[in-house]
Design a binder for these strands. Sequence first.
DNA 1: TCGTTCATGTAACGCGTTACATGATTGC
DNA 2: GCAATCATGTAACGCGTTACATGAACGA
Lengths: 214, 214
Amino acid sequence: MSKRSGILEFAVLGLLRESPMHGYELRKRLNTSLGVFRAFSYGSLYPCLKTLVTLGWLIEEPAVDSGPPAAPLAGRRAKIVYRLTAAGKEHFEELLAHSGPDAWEDEHFAARFAFFGQTSKDVRMRVLEGRRSRLEERLEKMRASLVRTRERLDDYTLELQRHGMESVEREVRWLNELIETERAGRVERPVDERDDNDNTNQENGGRPEARGTA
Amino acid sequence: MSKRSGILEFAVLGLLRESPMHGYELRKRLNTSLGVFRAFSYGSLYPCLKTLVTLGWLIEEPAVDSGPPAAPLAGRRAKIVYRLTAAGKEHFEELLAHSGPDAWEDEHFAARFAFFGQTSKDVRMRVLEGRRSRLEERLEKMRASLVRTRERLDDYTLELQRHGMESVEREVRWLNELIETERAGRVERPVDERDDNDNTNQENGGRPEARGTA
DNA sequence: TCGTTCATGTAACGCGTTACATGATTGC
DNA sequence: GCAATCATGTAACGCGTTACATGAACGA
């Protein structure tokens, strides 16, 4: 209906899935833990939260402020803590699994990757491979346009293109490593129903060997 | 006044400086020659052109269609060719030289770099160095946030951060090479007043040696 | 008590896109 | 003749930001 948003909505749901939070804290985690790839401001976050509430993905809670025990009374502007509803959880799963055409773009991909810890292995594979083929398309276009326009571009433009292509190629190699690592990975932890907080996901969950590759 | 735009405006002026063009062609060059880093649509391009005309940077010309000699008459919807005015040229120089706080962001930088062929050496140096220090700031922040949050992030988030940092570090190395090359560069071609088309800018204008570095 | 950080919001604007509407020219 | 592509535009919307307004809690 009104005011749907892409990546911000997704990130909010993802963070809230880990644990309930209020807006301020949410924003900080958006810009630090996750935020390497993007910064959000209150002007977008708070309206987004409201929308998600009206959609039923989130509920507001009056913030049982467990910190300072004094002055727990009356009219103090309570922090609003947002908690993911069951429907919200479901919706988030859908978003994770969904492979829309724009799902492989830079920021969409980064956002999904950031929540791989909460994603099943097959979905992870699909996302990684989707991203890779998206990048390979992009490389094709770049090469084609280079062939078409080479000779009538100055050195700087050329250098810019070359550096751009190299960056993309580098990301493809990175994805290749990740995909290999995933393939080698064993156990499929069902992810569902385990009430929070055991985020220690050991047993070779992430990227083992394959480092100092340059 | 109304409808000022950043990078699109800049790119249009830059392309038009090389030679007059109509909107359609302009858009194609935006998305091929230059367009590795960004794609624009008509919905933004045409309004932008109008604005630039009212500002006096551009003038519309009725397109003396030199191609098909037949049917040069009456009411055919003429292509509109846009040409940079003297004021527009001046404005573009200002934009090139200007070092606003946002001038070092990803897309701003890429756009400026794409027009280095029309930029004097000292400005090129300022831009490259500005970009580099901007990236170094960014690296500082990333490192700091890593120190703060390490240990309570899952492997995937960590890997994402690591890859992000490596990308930035790589660009810094790239800039270092470019800056060195610039320093080694000799002649300062005044750039001004040479009526178009001798774009052959030889004499070691771009990036000589320093390749296969990985 | 005074500045800083925490905490929540709103209004206006920025900078673009998508989808639509329109028509001329070219090549088969 | 008909499709493709060239060529120009407009209206509505998307997804965010900046700047502003407000106020409580905390530390020195």
